[in-house]
């Protein structure tokens, strides 16, 4: 074991891992995090806590991670390089480890133009791959960027994201390889609606031997409505929602669309479980955490292993 992360133990033991996303509130009410934590408790191996997603100001990811940790959850701290330079990022990694956080997902982050602070300075001192390497070097070499020794280095299980659906298409697997090479232990993918494209991407990753070196968790986001499907297809950067999915959502009465979205999510999970090289699933139910248990129950993944 490289770390004492529960997620690492689950994956090492060969279990099909389950993670879910928890978005912190747009305010300072710990109760919101606790309510979401309660909904997910017992159903997931680890919970991702987003870092000011869509560049909108929310409760600090680290604070929400600690709230969840205190409830018995295993948090995955999402860290973007958009808002903090290398001094702040490395300092936060020390702090996170001191507070019991054992997993970190390294991201560049959505550009500030998407959020509610459009006039903000975009920091981008590091990119996500450089952050992966930084966290890995802390653990393996006990050093900061630049080589200075760390007294008690944090030993984090290192994650990164992969988006198989962005352009240039041929580059996506190269970028995944770079993340693995930089030290990623696990990958969580963009949410999948185009299964063909996803399968092709994983096949490429398999051919390059990447699925042997990194645990890939397939991203799933249940659609709430046909409107959401259309919005994601046209307005959200880096998403691929095929016409067929939009039509399927629009083809049922409005009241039944949420059920249809959940059905699609369940089918997606069933499908990715059959793909060789997929180590788990990452459910991102955006402000819809209450539906995660039923989705997981429907695919028989609601009982999490004791590790």
């Amino acid at each position: 074991m490289k770390t004492d992360s529960r997620l690492e133990r689950v994956l090492q033991a060969g279990h099909f891992a389950v993670t879910a996303e928890c978005g912190p509130p747009k305010g300072s009410d710990a109760g919101v995090v606790e309510r979401k934590g309660k909904l997910l408790f017992g159903y997931v191996d680890a919970v991702n806590v987003t870092d000011n997603q869509a560049a909108t100001v929310r409760m600090a990811s680290l604070a929400a991670c600690v709230i969840l940790k205190n409830m018995g959850h295993e948090p995955i701290l999402q860290m973007t390089t958009r808002d903090r330079n290398r001094i702040a990022l490395q300092s936060d990694l020390f702090g996170a480890y001191a507070l019991g956080i054992r997993n970190v997902l390294c991201l560049t982050g959505d550009h500030q133009v998407f959020g509610n602070q459009k006039e903000a300075l975009g920091v981008f001192d590091l990119d996500s791959i450089q952050l992966v390497r930084t966290v890995r070097d802390m653990r393996e070499d006990g050093t900061l960027i630049g080589g200075a020794d760390i007294e008690s280095p944090p030993k984090m299980f290192v994650g990164a994201a992969a988006n198989p659906f962005a352009d240039p298409a041929a580059w996506r697997v190269v970028r995944l390889a770079k993340k693995v090479q930089a030290g990623a232990d696990f990958i969580q993918t963009q949410c999948i609606y185009n299964m063909q494209r996803f399968s092709n991407f994983i096949a490429q990753a398999r051919d390059m031997g990447l699925t042997e070196r990194v645990s890939i968790l397939a991203g799933v986001t249940p659609l709430k409505s046909a409107g959401m499907a259309k919005h994601m297809a046209t307005k959200v950067a880096g998403m691929d929602v095929p016409e067929a999915i939009i039509n399927r959502m629009a083809g049922v009465p409005k009241k039944k669309q949420a059920d249809e979205g959940i059905k699609i999510a369940v089918e997606t999970i069933q499908h990715v479980r059959e793909i060789k090289g997929i180590a788990g699933v990452h459910v991102m139910a955006i402000e819809w955490e209450e539906h995660v248990p039923e989705i997981l129950s429907a695919v028989g993944l609601d009982k999490r292993p004791k590790v």
Binding site: T108, V113, G122, D127, I129, Q130, D167, A237, G238
Partner: peptide, 29 residues
């Protein structure tokens, strides 16, 4: 690159355009 990425295009590159604004060419493309 709108995010000054040094290790390849982010997940927001679509058909040669940047996620920030379709008027911006994706530098990485």
């Amino acid at each position: 690159c709108s995010k000054r990425l040094m290790n390849g295009p982010c997940g927001g590159s679509k058909e040669g355009r940047c996620e920030v604004n379709p008027g911006i060419s994706c530098g990485w493309q």
